[in-house]
Design a protein around this nucleic acid. Structure first.
Length: 203
DNA sequence: AAACAGATCTACT
DNA sequence: GTAGATCTGTTTT
């Protein structure tokens, strides 16, 4: 059984190395466990797309702490999204968990998700949090504990199994291809291309 | 006081 | 598969 130092060490490298390492990892919270199939890397203060870009605030404080903890934020007035803090302390890099496959606790997850189809239970960052019942109360949680718990795969996915592309929904730096997903996995979220910043015709 | 952020759902083609 | 409506905690002015 890996200790907290082991998990922290494996998450302490550059975020672009760590992010694909999370594909295939299992995140468990209570009765529900999800195998991660899609993630996005955010590189701290150097990254205009990161919540840490404009420095530390009450909301993002956890990002500036040690690797291996959960950073949970609230958005759209009703959704939560969760990230795994990576890199060295103070770096504020993190990996957003965008999608996964429920591998334990299907009944509980389906009830929380309003009876959604199997592949949609954790397909999308807010759906993943809803299936796992992760909220701001879990912000800062140590993932080496029993719950929430993150178990990294024994072997990293082969390079052929991982695809990359632009991150979703960013206004700042959409051209960094820092989204990683398992090729062909049905639980990977639908890609939404960036809206063309062209003036729309007035009615 | 006001602006911002952004994922999901529904309804429809 | 696509288009449009939706909301409140957080941050900035």
């Amino acid at each position: 059984v890996p200790g907290s130092a082991d998990l922290r060490d494996r998450l302490s490298g550059p975020v672009l190395e760590v992010a694909p390492r999370l594909l295939g990892a299992v995140l468990r919270h209570g009765d529900v466990a999800v195998r991660l199939t899609e993630v996005e890397a955010y590189d701290g203060a150097d990254d205009p797309g990161s919540h840490a870009y404009r420095g530390r605030t009450d909301r993002n404080a956890v990002m500036f702490g040690p690797a291996g903890h959960l950073y949970v934020y609230f958005t759209y007035g009703m959704h939560h999204c969760c990230n795994v803090v990576t890199g060295e302390q103070g770096r504020a890099s993190a990996v957003l968990l965008r999608a996964g496959e429920v591998v334990e606790g299907h009944e509980t997850a389906r009830a929380r998700r309003g009876g959604a189809r199997e592949r949609d239970l954790a397909r999308g960052p807010a759906r993943l949090c809803q299936a796992l019942a992760i909220t701001r109360e879990d912000d800062g949680a140590d993932l080496s504990g029993a719950s929430p718990q993150l178990v990294l795969p024994a072997e990293e996915p082969g390079t052929g199994a991982v695809q990359t592309g632009p991150r979703v929904g960013l206004r700042g730096a959409p051209e960094r291809p820092w989204r990683f997903w398992l090729a062909g996995d049905p639980t990977v979220s639908a890609y939404r291309p960036a809206r063309v910043l062209e003036e729309r015709r007035q009615i």
